[in-house]
């Protein structure tokens, strides 16, 4: 019998390796559930979950909402554009108002790093971080590692390269923590302007040459260039980025082995990855999306278990 060591999912940083493994084992069961004709279980039928998205999101929100509904939870959605936030209300007030309507769990995406941690200290509810600024995006990292485990049997001792904008990416940071906790080796690759200073202190390898990075790795996780976060030009042109860091068939053919290709979406076809590669058998991009629902169901289920009557 086991349960999570944490009360909230704020970041991978706070999880233990056995927490991650428990989430994966539970997700195995839910993956089976979502592949049946009736894709639903009644576990969370007396739980209400609020999805608070203070930043745009399509697939994460959809994935969470599906996960919640497949656990039979009641769901309310809230996005900042249609809320009182624009009228000057503070985060704690907004959330407390929602909790006053008897909400048990909060899934939150927020542009500010640490928003989830702040909220967990100030309100009485289970908080799940669905992305906080450039800090963490724990469920994405969990589903990425889960997909590697599913495809390759295990995550331990695998070599994973994360390619792209490491500087602005919460996916990269959460992935680094998660992969390392599971015993994988991690390398980051991208233009020097997009590799954060001192990132080697996290114990990751830095490689500026994509070809070398790919020759080293078993799995390549290609990140999207997040134009919306780029306040200055970090590289001369998209064309140049795509020439140096884009994944195409020629680059893959030049390797002496087959590697697994991942992408957290949404894909900019022709920029970080070409259509042929994204649609090839090496890519597990759509498996990641499917696994996302199962992993999020596992997280919600395991945290809900800690809400006592």
């Amino acid at each position: 019998m086991s349960e999570l060591s944490v009360e909230h999912l704020l970041g991978i940083k706070y999880l233990s390796t056995s927490d991650i493994n428990l989430i994966f084992e539970t997700a195995d069961n839910f993956k089976q559930v979502i592949n049946r004709p009736i894709k639903k279980v009644p576990s969370l039928r007396d739980i209400t979950i609020a999805n608070l998205f203070f930043e745009n999101s399509t697939r994460t929100k959809l994935s969470f909402e599906l996960a919640e509904k497949r656990l039979s939870a009641d769901v309310v959605n809230f996005s900042s554009s249609s809320s009182s936030v624009t009228k000057g209300e503070t985060l704690v007030d907004t959330v407390n108002n929602i909790l006053a309507m008897k909400v048990d769990m909060v899934v939150m995406r927020h542009p500010f790093p640490g928003a989830g941690v702040f909220l967990s200290k100030n309100v009485d509810s289970k908080i799940i971080n669905a992305g906080d600024g450039a800090h963490e995006h724990p469920t994405q990292a969990l589903l990425d590692s889960y997909s590697i485990r599913e495809r390759m049997g295990d995550v331990a001792r695998k070599k994973v390269v994360i390619v792209g904008d490491i500087l602005h990416s919460r996916v990269a940071l959460s992935n680094i923590f998660c992969l390392q906790k599971l015993g994988a080796e991690v390398c980051v690759c991208g233009p020097k302007t997009m590799i954060p200073k001192h990132i080697e202190s996290l114990g990751v390898k830095i490689e500026l040459d994509l070809q070398k990075a790919l020759n080293w790795c078993d799995v390549a996780n290609m990140l999207r260039i997040q134009r919306e976060r780029l306040e200055i030009n970090y590289f001369p042109s998209t064309r140049e980025y795509s020439m140096l860091y884009g994944l195409n068939n020629e680059v893959l053919d030049s390797l002496d082995k087959e590697i697994v290709i991942m992408h957290p979406g949404p894909i900019n076809r022709g920029v970080e990855i070409t259509s042929e590669v994204a649609d090839s058998d090496h890519a597990i991009i759509l498996d990641q999306v499917e696994n996302g629902v199962a992993v999020r169901m596992a997280v919600l289920y395991l945290l809900a278990q800690k809400i006592r009557h």
């Binding site: 019998m1 195995d28 069961n29 278990q305």
Partner: peptide
């Protein structure tokens, strides 16, 4: 006791 799932 937390409930742990088995395989279906």
């Amino acid at each position: 006791e937390p409930l742990t799932a088995n395989k279906t």
